[in-house]
């Protein structure tokens, strides 16, 4: 983030068009390179979520599957916050309180 970006943010102005261009390009290139349309990606997201939901309880709204690229390598990145495993008690995302002894 540059000085200009911060000033724009403080003034509630649009971010500079170069950042918008960069973000749009990164997204469109990830799709071009993998030859996956947004529809296919969404279908894949749903199917991945169904499979994962068999094992752990997940928030179906929160789960995100996206394509990311770096150095001409494209990766499929799934971010699926787990509520708890189906077998029982584990709550992964619960903050743990420290006990003083």
């Amino acid at each position: 983030m540059t000085l200009r970006d911060i000033i724009n943010k403080l003034l509630g102005r649009q971010e500079s068009s170069a950042s918008t261009a960069r973000e749009r390009l990164q997204l469109v290139l990830a799709h071009d390179r993998s030859d996956l349309s947004p529809e296919l990606l969404d279908q894949m997201r749903k199917e991945i979520l169904e499979v994962v939901a068999k094992y752990v309880e997940i928030d179906l709204e929160e789960g995100a599957v996206s394509l990311e690229t770096e150095d001409r390598m494209t990766a499929l990145v799934a971010n699926l916050p787990i509520k708890r495993s189906l077998s029982g008690a584990i709550q992964v995302k619960e903050p743990v309180k420290e006990s003083s002894d």
């Binding site: 200009r4 970006d5 170069a18 261009a21 960069r22 390009l25 990164q26 150095d71 001409r72």
Partner: peptide, 18 residues
């Protein structure tokens, strides 16, 4: 335009195209 960030920078383009 690059200085006012209304054009993709050299780094942006070389990063994206690698």
């Amino acid at each position: 335009m690059m200085a006012s960030q209304e054009m993709l920078s050299i780094e942006d383009v070389t990063d994206i195209l690698a």
